[in-house]
């Protein structure tokens, strides 16, 4: 418990800075936070996330290739979550009724997930203290980690997990992005909470 005083607001700003300041086009960033309720922080759970979405390259909205039934399901879940958050009964809402893209859905579903004992992409990076960088749909499909395979199914081409002292920064993109040391360094600086927040 002596490690970091966690500040949710600055966590959000850091994730945003990471994505908005990058030359590459990242779709989302998530901070998986190690839990102090378990020995050695063996569980990584949702800390915070920032969803930017896909680049609009003049082709209009992101292509949605899901079935009508799947879209109806996603919209219902979004409506329910919206009313849960706003505290009122579900009513008409133009934004909620827009199609829910694959990457939006992947991001939303991620909020329900956690990773234990080195199993799963973020957890593996955390326990090995080694970044994982997978670029290419084929490589995501061939990964031993279910999260990487799932990412490919929802349209990602690149997934990255970079460990920090208190968790793991995961980033994903629908574009093919090759490994850069620049991103690793940024994560190292932005997510080293031990140095920044103990005061």
């Amino acid at each position: 418990k002596s490690v970091a005083v966690f500040n949710q607001e600055t966590l959000q700003q850091r994730l945003q800075a990471l994505i908005d300041g990058a030359r590459e086009s990242w779709t989302y960033a998530i901070f998986w936070q190690s839990s102090y309720d378990y020995p050695d922080g063996s569980v990584l759970g949702w800390g915070d996330g920032y969803y930017k979405g896909e680049e609009d390259k003049g082709k209009g909205k992101a292509k949605v290739v899901t079935s009508a039934a799947e879209q109806a399901h996603r919209k219902k879940v979004l409506r329910d979550l919206n009313s849960l958050i706003s505290g009122s009964a579900a009513g008409p809402d133009d934004a909620v009724d827009e199609e829910v893209t694959d990457t939006e859905w992947f991001f939303l579903v991620s909020m329900t997930q956690s990773f234990v004992n080195g199993v799963g992409l973020p957890s593996q990076a955390f326990f090995d203290s080694t970044p994982i960088w997978i670029s290419g749909a084929d490589r995501l499909s061939a990964s031993a980690c279910e999260r990487a395979r799932q990412g490919k199914v929802f349209g990602l081409q690149t997934m990255v997990c970079i460990p920090s002292p208190n968790g793991v920064v995961e980033m994903g993109s629908t574009e093919l992005i090759h490994r850069t040391s620049d991103l690793m360094n940024k994560v190292k600086i932005l997510f080293n909470f031990n140095n920044l927040e103990t005061s």
Binding site: W46, D93, E98, E104, L108
Partner: peptide, 29 residues
């Protein structure tokens, strides 16, 4: 509502707000 952990609730709130901004851009006067 109380079953939703705070971190997830905040993230979800932000996600929904930003989605609304993305999909329904403010109309300038």
């Amino acid at each position: 509502d109380e079953d939703l952990p705070l971190a997830r609730k905040r993230s979800l709130q932000r996600f929904l707000e930003r989605r609304k901004e993305r999909l329904i851009p403010a109309v300038p006067y």
